[in-house]
Computed example of a mutant assay.
Amino acid sequence: MATSRGAGGGAVLGYVASRKNLAGSACGVAGVGLALAGGAGAHWPVVVAALYGAGALIAPPERPPVPDLPDPHEQLALVRENLARLREYLAEAGPAPVGGKLAALLELYEALLDPGWAAEVLAVDPEAVHALDRAIRLDVPECVDTYHRTRWWTRWNPGGESSEQHLERQLAVLSEEAEKLTADLREAEARRQRTHTAYLEERGRS
């Protein structure tokens, strides 16, 4: 009950300080002034209430506070931490038959996250950061985990497509995604360079 009363009190205090109440109160005060001047007659309470309601209705709605989103560089720092945890997990999980492809994929991830101009380009692309974090935090661990689990069961029930083949196909897809991400970031830098070239040439002609 105390929590309910506290929540209700907070709502009341919030409305008291809201734009609607302030606008309505201003119009209501104007109505009181009109009544004192004799312009509202015997029905002045109704006039004051109507003016208050009209002011509350025409007041602009409350704007929700801007969310406190993490800084892009803070996001990249978290992704770097996830990559370090991924490396620790892979060391504990044991070797995989496509270790070379897995190592190459991790090196590409690390190069994209390496502090410097590459990370600066990555930081301004939230979708790219999300895709990279998803691959590091979810996709690669799932690929390796399901490989080791399936390989254990295959010992007792051999046959069918091998777990090694599935792992190789999964890493191939992740490698293609990482290469496309790298190409998109490279194209973003190329567009920036072309734009600056066009600006300098235009400035030179003028």
Results as ranks from 00 to 15, higher is better:
5 R>A: 07
5 R>N: 08
8 G>N: 12
11 A>E: 12
16 V>P: 02
21 N>R: 11
23 A>W: 15
26 A>P: 03
27 C>G: 10
32 V>C: 13
37 A>W: 02
38 G>I: 03
42 A>L: 13
44 W>C: 00
44 W>V: 00
46 V>S: 10
56 A>F: 07
62 E>P: 06
62 E>I: 09
63 R>P: 08
67 P>H: 03
69 L>K: 06
71 D>H: 14
72 P>Q: 03
74 E>A: 13
75 Q>L: 14
77 A>P: 04
79 V>T: 15
80 R>S: 06
82 N>P: 00
83 L>I: 01
86 L>Q: 04
89 Y>Q: 07
91 A>Y: 08
93 A>D: 01
94 G>Y: 03
95 P>M: 06
96 A>F: 09
98 V>M: 05
98 V>I: 09
99 G>V: 02
99 G>Y: 05
100 G>I: 09
101 K>Y: 15
106 L>E: 10
107 E>F: 07
111 A>C: 04
113 L>W: 06
116 G>D: 08
120 E>I: 05
121 V>G: 02
127 E>H: 10
129 V>M: 05
129 V>H: 02
133 D>S: 13
140 V>D: 01
149 R>D: 08
149 R>F: 04
150 T>G: 08
151 R>H: 03
151 R>S: 08
154 T>C: 06
155 R>W: 13
155 R>E: 15
156 W>G: 07
157 N>T: 08
158 P>I: 07
163 S>K: 00
164 E>G: 01
164 E>R: 06
167 L>R: 00
168 E>M: 05
168 E>I: 01
168 E>S: 07
169 R>W: 00
170 Q>I: 04
174 L>P: 01
178 A>L: 03
178 A>D: 01
178 A>K: 00
180 K>N: 12
181 L>I: 04
182 T>D: 06
186 R>C: 07
186 R>E: 14
188 A>T: 09
191 R>W: 14
195 T>W: 10
196 H>I: 10
197 T>K: 13
202 E>T: 08
203 R>E: 07
